[in-house]
Design a protein around this nucleic acid. Structure first.
Length: 876
RNA sequence: GGACCCGUAGCUCAGUUGGUUAGAGCGCUUCCUUGACAUGGAAGAGGUCACAGGUUCGAGUCCUGUCGGGUCCACCA
């Protein structure tokens, strides 16, 4: 054991085990006929990603569960991989190009894709390697990418199938358009932020009487250039008479009608709404209802186009707003400008203000897919942990809107649709067509757009296992068991995976969804690169170790996690504690009998109290950890482990047995508890435990495939727990009192005890033998200042065992009085309930649940009274 | 406008179906350390559980309201 240093040297050790796990393909799995499968698919990080705390948390949680299940004997598969992350990745590469002074258009589609693949090859595995560093036990041999060949096949099949079922359609609608990324975005990709803007009140003069005008209110005056009507609510008495009249649109001087529409809220603004069908989703719908002309006044990059007129054409939308405001002012038609705060959508990738823009896009009809996805959750086939997310999920599905899936970028799955240039036929096909089936023309042109990234991600749980081909892996591992993700991703990904799983596999993709919190800084802000408040997990690994990162993150995780750097000390210190406890035991244990079970140790009637106690404690801790993990209560599991290992095992048991290490029974217990603890801690802190395991000499296998300790209820040993509790109480009392003992040199029996703790003083006086044992066994150093005692607990146990009567610790009279009072109160209450229950009017009129509640209470009170009486009669 | 979450020690948080004296870590005070570990050991101070009502024999826990903080959803131009 000489090679074990006094500090846990995590750096070299982590490196060593990372390599061992990977080179040995320790986590590679496949179907095994006589084992039950347990599988998790990783939320695939973006290829552009670098590890942040959110990843660290997410993957640690998954790793704990997968290691736990693996040790329990499941054939476990944790499927790793990355997401091509369409817009995000293309943005990265386009930024590179910009530095070279080029745009994507200078390169063209093919060359840009080459660059992107090149980039993916060079940097795409960064995050995968970082995940390995935190100890993620994925089946790395399976690592998938959402643009793998087989995966692309799945995406294409899904598109074609849905199209054939009529669930994919193409149409011209107002979508969220990012003028910077030049692409459509889904509703979920638009992030709304409160924005302090203005409400402009503009006078639109009547054609028949230019002196009079109708005032409309808008937050976006620039869009007036595309107005084709003004709408009022038909039931609004102010305006009913005006319906059908013609107004003259200022600046443009276009004649536009006043139309009635229920959409208009008379309460808001002036009750008259300018209608711009090309630039507002609601106006678009109004326009459809009233067959209004649609005038697009903007280029895709957010600049005004020729329809905006000479004065504004070419101006950016925000410049145009100012220019128009100024002109309206000059024309004296700007009545007033009010402060007005409202939500403005931003691109979730580049935070540019989104423009509602009219364009032809592909959509997925969601309602038919949402229905079954809702049912499996309301039926309880899929459960959210914590449960409250169920409601969020259901609300979204109940109000679902169609999903815009086409993106005007180049990086991604190209839409498998071709248009015949000669006959306008639309061809949707698994294989690239070369002839138009309708007119035999060869002039086919593929749709330029690619699919939304999430259109591939939603297939992740089955496409990664080889779908659409059938495979043994898919049969064996699908449906997967649990999914771990953050709440932000419920709509983007979780809900859609459930839809896809049900639609294409006919089965749910997973049964449990664990939603974890967001990692925030100590001020509660989201950690982000732009804020500069991010703590880099790699830095923590470097400074504190991967085990420390994992342990600290989990033990601090409640809902959202607020974290600062010093929080990681707990994990580092705990890893070190495990290390040093192991050193102590390994330095002292000589026994060859290393495989004895806790059960047989406990069967030895002569085993000392402390050993019985620690075995019992371990056992109850294990039970708690099992329960906590089954319910995904991770921090609870870690707290139990921490408390057991540090407070019980190290602070008490090891201190007690230190001077009895020559006893082979004690050696066996110490070793066995250490070994079992190491196994129990392994899913949480894989590195330090693997290393200790390799020194234990119990097995040559990697700890990853060693069995999880078995919980046996028979282990719980109440007698030893109580005895030990008593002993700890006494010793703790001695420790408390010890600085107050004023012993002069040579007068060690003449002791003055402080009156501060009279109960303890009494106990000590009545139990002289304890005190004598204490004096004898502990290194008592007496000097002029008083008494100094080292290792207070050492060796005392044998002397103390079973010799302390309960009465000396607790004031029994007080206790009995309390119990009698308690019983009296209960009896009175029971009589009240009894009376109520025998009252006919009460029984007839009270709701059944009230009666039931009363009956239950009566039962529990009766039980309690009985218990107290039992105890009291035993005392006599 | 709807929905949800949170408010417990100086700080960050536990507290599972209501049940003895409300817990932990960090920080703080005091003491200790020469053989596992100062990334350590012992002891201690510190809480009207946001506030106000209610249900109950009993409330940090359940209900109602108020105040404060946060998140998500929603087409108010």
């Amino acid at each position: 054991m000489s090679e074990m240093s006094t500090r846990f040297d995590f750096k070299n050790i982590e490196k060593k085990w990372c390599r061992y796990w990977e080179d040995g393909h320790i986590f590679h799995t496949g179907p095994v006929s006589n084992k039950k499968p347990y599988s998790i698919v990783i939320p695939p990080p973006n290829v552009t990603g670098i590890l942040h705390m959110g990843h660290a948390l997410n993957n640690t949680l998954q790793d704990i569960i997968i290691r736990y299940k693996r040790m329990q004997g499941y054939e476990t598969c944790w499927m790793p991989g990355t997401d091509h992350a369409g817009i995000a990745t293309q943005n990265v590469v386009e930024k590179q190009l910009a530095k070279e002074g080029k745009t994507r258009h200078d390169l063209g589609r093919e060359k840009l894709l080459e660059r992107l693949w090149q980039w993916k090859k060079e940097y795409g595995d960064t995050i995968i390697n970082q995940l390995k560093k935190i100890g993620s036990s994925c089946d790395w041999d399976r690592t998938r990418f959402t643009m793998d060949e087989q995966y692309s096949l799945a995406v294409r099949k899904v598109f074609v199938d849905l199209f054939k079922k009529g669930l994919i359609y193409r149409g011209e609608y107002i979508i969220n358009w990012c003028p910077r990324c030049h692409t459509a975005l889904s509703d979920e990709e638009a992030e709304y932020q409160e924005h302090q803007g203005a409400l402009y009140h503009i006078k639109y003069p009547f054609k028949d009487n230019p002196q009079r005008s109708l005032v409309v209110a808008t937050t976006r005056p620039e869009t007036m250039l595309g107005d084709t009507a003004v709408a009022v609510n038909p039931s609004d008495p102010r305006y009913t008479a005006l319906i059908g009249k013609i107004l003259i649109l200022p600046i443009v001087n276009r004649e536009i009608p006043i139309i009635p529409d229920d959409f208009v809220d008379p309460e808001f603004g002036t009750g008259a709404v300018k209608v711009t069908p090309a630039h507002d989703p609601n106006d678009f719908l109004i326009g459809k209802r009233h067959k209004l002309p649609v005038i697009n006044i903007m280029h895709p990059d957010g600049r005004m186009n020729e329809n905006a007129g000479e004065d504004f054409s070419g101006l950016d939308r925000f410049e145009a707003r100012e220019a128009i405001t100024e002109m309206l002012h000059e024309l004296k038609v700007l009545e007033k400008v009010e402060q007005h705060s409202h939500a403005v959508g931003h691109c979730y990738r580049c935070h540019t203000v989104i423009e509602p823009y009219l364009s032809k896009q592909w959509f997925v009809k969601m309602a038919p897919l949402a229905k079954p996805a809702l049912k499996v959750v309301t039926d309880g086939k899929i459960k959210f942990y914590p449960e409250r997310w169920t409601k969020v999920y259901c609300h979204w599905l109940e109000n679902i809107r169609d999903w815009c899936i086409s993106r005007q970028i180049w990086w991604g799955h190209r839409i498998p649709v071709w248009y015949c240039q000669d006959c306008d036929e639309t061809i949707v096909s698994m294989d690239d067509p070369s002839v138009c089936p309708k007119c035999n023309s060869h002039q086919l042109k593929q749709d330029e757009d690619v699919l939304d990234t999430w259109f591939s991600s939603w297939l992740w749980p089955f496409a990664t296992f080889g779908w659409p081909d059938t495979s043994k892996d898919l049969d064996y591992f699908y449906p997967t068991n649990s999914l771990f993700t953050a709440s932000e991703i419920i709509f983007f990904w979780v809900a859609r995976m459930i839809m896809a799983g049900l639609e294409f596999m006919g089965e749910i993709p997973f049964s449990d969804i664990f939603i974890h919190g967001t990692v925030r800084d100590s001020q509660g802000r989201k950690m982000s690169k732009s804020l500069g408040n991010a703590i880099d997990p790699l830095e923590i690994i470097d400074e504190y170790g991967a085990d420390a990162l994992r342990f600290s993150l989990i033990i601090n995780s409640g809902q959202d996690i607020y974290i600062s750097k010093d929080k990681f000390e707990i994990g580092r210190n705990f890893a070190n504690k495990i290390w040093n406890a192991s050193r102590l035991i390994l330095m002292n244990v000589k026994t060859d009998n290393r495989n004895i079970s806790l059960e047989s140790l406990l069967r030895d009637q002569d085993l000392d109290t402390a050993s019985r106690w620690i075995i019992s404690k371990f056992n109850s801790t294990l039970k708690g950890v099992n329960n906590a993990l089954e319910l995904y209560r991770f921090s609870e599991a870690e707290n139990l482990i921490y408390e057991f290992f540090w407070s019980n095992f190290c602070d008490w048991y090891l201190e007690i047995i230190k001077q009895q290490f020559d006893n082979p029974k004690i050696q066996q217990v110490a070793l066995k508890i250490l070994e079992s603890s190491i196994r129990m801690i392994h899913p949480f802190m894989p590195f330090v435990t693997e290393e200790v395991w390799s020194h234990l000499g119990v097995s040559d296998n990697s700890l990853s495939h060693i069995k999880w300790p078995e919980y046996k209820p028979v282990y719980t040993d109440i007698e030893s727990e109580q005895s030990m509790g008593l002993i700890i109480g006494i010793i703790a009392g001695i420790r408390t009192a010890r600085v107050q003992w004023n012993i002069k040199s040579g007068q060690s029996t003449d002791i003055h005890l402080s009156a501060e703790n009279p109960d303890m003083v009494k106990t000590l006086k009545n139990n002289e033998h304890i005190f004598n044992a204490f004096l004898k066994i502990n290194k008592l150093v007496i000097n002029d200042e008083g008494v100094k005692i080292k290792n207070a607990a050492s060796g005392i146990i044998d002397k103390v065992k079973y010799q302390i009567p309960l009465e000396d610790i607790i004031d029994i009279d007080k206790e009995i009085r309390r119990m009698k009072e308690d019983a009296a109160v209960c009896e009175k209450h029971a009589a009240d309930i009894q009376k109520r229950l025998s009252n006919h009017t009460f029984i007839e009129k009270a709701p059944t649940e009230v009666v039931e509640r009363d009956k239950e209470r009566l039962n529990s009170i009766s039980d309690k009274i009985k218990n107290i009486q039992d105890v009291l009669s035993n005392l006599d």
